[in-house]
Amino acid sequence: MYSFEIESPVSVADAVAALGKEEAQALGGGQTLIPSLKARLAAPAVLVSLSKIDEIKGISAADGVLSIGGGATHASVAAEAGAYPALAALAANIGDPAVRNRGTIGGSLANNDPAACYPAAALASGATIVTNTREIAADDYFEGMFTTALEDGEIVTEVRFPIPEKAAYVKFEQPASRFALVGVFVAKYPDGVRVAVTGASEEGVFRWEEAEAALSGNFSASALDGLSLPAEGMMGDLHAAPDYRAHLVGVMTRRAVTAAQ
C-alpha cells in the first residue's frame, strides 16, 4: 500500500470537512477499498473513516419507509431491517459473516460494483439515496459500472426504501468471488412492479422494464413467459458468456417472483 493518513471523524460535518482535503477519500467498511489499496490501485493522501460516525448507523421504519443509515453494516441490516424482509435477507447473504460485520450499505452504493447486491435493491425499491447535501432518486443515482451521481466528497448518509407489498431477491453466485453472476430484485408496489438486475449488464445495475410491465399486470412467474433479454450488452467473462447471463436474468426473475409470493 502507498502511505496515507487515516482520520476518524465522529460526525458527518467533520467527515465532510476532512474529505475537503487534498487527495482525501472516504473509507466505509473497506471491504472493497482495502483490497484495492493493497493492490496499489488507489493512492489517497488521507482516508476518512466513516465507521465512528454513529449518526449514520441507524435503521428505522416509519410510514411505509425503511430508513437505513449509510454507515449501517450488512450485518445490522440483516438483523434490524425486519420491516423489509427481502432486504434483510439480501443483506444476510452478501459476502460472508466477517465481511458483513464491516461492509456498509453506503459504501456498497457509493462503489456501485456491477455485481453488488445492494444496487439491485435500491433500484428495484425506488429508494432515495440521501447524502450530506441532497436526496437522489435511485433512478438517477446509478450511472454505470462503478459510477454514481455522487460528487467528490459527498457522503451517503441514509437510504430510504419504500416498503413494498411483496419482494424477493434471488442471486446466482459467481463461483469464485460469490458476488452475483446475476442477481434479480423484484418488488411489488401498489402502483406497479419494479425489477432490477445486477451482475449482468455492462452498464451496471438496470431495470428490466418489459418484465416490470408484464408483472405489473399479473404478478406471477407465468407473466414472464416469452420474455427474454438480448445477449447484447451483457457482460462476458471467465464465468459466463453474455447469452448465458441473459438467460439467467430470465430464470432468476421468475424465481424471484415465485419467492415473493
Binding site: P175, A176, S177, R178, L238, H239
Partner: peptide, 26 residues
C-alpha cells in the same frame, strides 16, 4: 471437476489471478 480453472487469454495474461476469479472449493 466443478470449480477450479487457471485461464490465460490469448496474449498470455492470467485471467484467474486471485480468489475473485479462481474458484476455490468452499
Amino acid at each position: 471437476a466443478m470449480l477450479e480453472n487457471c485461464v490465460y487469454d490469448e496474449n498470455g495474461q492470467l485471467l484467474s489471478a486471485s480468489y475473485m476469479d479462481y474458484a476455490m472449493p468452499r
